[in-house]
């Protein structure tokens, strides 16, 4: 196993790598806007409950009103967002991470030899 000192240098090299910066950028550019968006979507429901009563009380089917339908959609949207994140991570984050890893391991191998 590598010593602490060697590790630090590996970390520094990785941090300086453009692809690592790109990886962090891709992560942030997805996660931060999405977090803001889904929080807004949940808060919108509360706002509608407070100030758009008539809309929320509209009966859709029997005693089921718009409020209940929107409430159920909250579950669905939670799942969809998580699924989208999973897809994004698998498509855009994992391959790049794998590339950086392969190179770092190769480099460590060479140093040991």
């Amino acid at each position: 196993m590598a010593t602490r000192h060697d590790d630090a240098s590996v970390y520094e090299r990785i941090e300086a790598d453009d692809r690592f910066r790109e990886l962090r950028r891709r992560f942030r550019s997805w996660v931060f806007p999405m977090t803001a968006a889904f929080l807004a979507w949940y808060l919108l429901y509360v706002a509608l409950s407070g100030w758009a009563r008539d809309l929320m009380a509209v009966k859709v089917l029997g005693n089921v009103n718009v409020a209940l339908v929107l409430g159920l959609l909250q579950f669905v949207s939670t799942f969809l967002i998580a699924w989208a994140y999973s897809r994004y991570a698998a498509r855009r984050l994992d391959p790049l991470a794998g590339e950086i890893r392969a190179e770092a391991e190769h480099e460590a191998e060479r140093e040991r030899a």
Partner: peptide
């Protein structure tokens, strides 16, 4: 600096 790199390096990176 070290811990921040550790937190944000690719998950599968097999480093200490």
């Amino acid at each position: 600096a070290r811990i921040m790199v550790r937190l944000h390096t690719p998950e599968t990176l097999d480093l200490d």
